[in-house]
Design a binder for these strands. Structure first.
Lengths: 233, 233
DNA sequence: ATCATTTTATTTGCATGCAAAATAATCAAT
DNA sequence: ATTGATTATTTTGCATGCAAATAAAATGAT
């Protein structure tokens, strides 16, 4: 497992940014990072270029700066994900899916049911992501799939954002049930070739995350997914 | 005008790819490009990384390859643009726009009318892009605006694709009139705060490009925008 | 103190050298 | 001829040196 230098720099910097360790507005200097990380500037620069393309860094005439996110950016990113996932499932419904694909989806639904009962949030996360990926893949558009996945690049916009924490919280538990009900509606809509229904459900499903963000903010929970978001003005 | 080396490499390579001079599947070697372009490998590598992030190149374990586009990728990219522009104008309609913004839009509409009459396709292109940018900007979501602009990165998906050529062609002239009618409908929907109408018109407006692609393909026109698309299977 | 100007220190953009990896070429054996 | 092993060539990934650009510090003027 050759651990390329630029990759480890990329992963390290990205995790520092999304964890909030590097707050918005921080200037990142290749020469300085090179010293602290003990690797040369060339692979650091590569990592910085890629992080800029991901939208986590902004480049001005001299140097990179960690991007600041306001709360409305969070909502916009969530809505963007809903829009793109919606387009994907709408197309999936229109073209129809195979029996085996439907069986796979139903297996995933059942698995998610059991992890909700068992309360294992880590497993829920993983299965939830798997279901979303599976649903998206059914649209048979490489370009659309790539854009849906790209919309997950900000941690607060990923489908697995917020539900993962505070599993003993009632409101959170309710949102799990609602979300899972929407998953079932989504699969049903696709199976029945109801494209616009599938679209609407996916958009609304993403909107669940709005409520979770609001809850996290008003409870002043230090949610890891919100670490890279600036204090509200 | 400081002409950075990596920028000129980026522009040069990008234009070679979108013009079809470099066809899909071609392998791009930094060392070789360095010699032919007379600049060192470092800025070449930067350009290649950025082109990969743009989706024009694919990187396998060793080296970059020019991406191949099939015809269905073209339609998918056009639909993606329609979806994102649609989301932007829907939001614009929902939040409402200022009087001055509406005046600006109407000025652009009138300008487009006159260039259609005068038949200057280059001017049409520029004004059409300007109108689309203006419309998109009204959604007041930095994140959405960025994604709409990103959806223009493949030349065949940009709003100014196909209409620019064969201005003496009847079918093409008709599509200009239809497109401009849709522009007016779009502005009217936004002014009237009719969000879902605006969305639907934007999606349909992008679909005009489908017909232009079909026409270009069946006429075997060597359309510059289709240069990077592979021969149909 | 505030601001402008010069000086000093960093930092970036680019070139290039080099080892490790990958590709291409050569040859051997079936 | 095809396959496999060996060698030669190219290419990448990384390190690093250097000039030009940028930021920071120091100095001086009001």
């Amino acid at each position: 497992m050759s651990e390329l230098q630029w990759k480890s720099a990329l992963y390290h910097l990205r995790s520092q940014i999304v964890s909030g360790e590097l707050i918005g507005g921080t200037k990142l200097r290749a020469s300085h990072l090179s010293e602290t990380m003990g690797i040369s500037r060339t692979p650091i620069s590569e990592a910085l270029i890629k992080l800029e393309a991901e939208g986590l860094l902004i480049k001005d005439k001299s140097g990179y700066t960690v991007r600041s996110f306001a709360l409305n950016d969070v909502f916009d990113a969530i809505d963007l994900r809903g829009l793109l996932e919606g387009a994907a499932v709408q197309r999936a419904a229109q073209i129809g899916i195979s029996d085996t694909a439907l069986t796979d989806l139903e297996t995933l639904l059942a698995d998610i049911d059991s992890v909700i009962e068992s309360g294992s949030v880590a497993d829920y996360d993983q299965l939830n992501i798997a279901l979303h990926k599976q649903l998206t893949s059914l649209c048979e558009s490489e370009i659309l799939i790539a854009e849906v996945n790209r919309s997950y690049r900000f941690p607060f916009a990923s489908p697995s954002a917020f539900p993962t924490r505070n599993s003993d919280n009632k409101r959170f538990l309710a949102s799990l049930y609602v979300g899972q009900a929407q998953h079932r509606q989504l699969v049903s809509a696709i199976a029945n070739r109801e494209g616009s229904r599938a679209f609407a459900i996916a958009v609304e499903h993403a909107r669940l995350a709005h409520a979770n963000v609001h809850a996290a903010v008003s409870a002043r929970e230090s949610s890891p997914q919100l670490a890279l978001v600036n204090a509200a003005p």
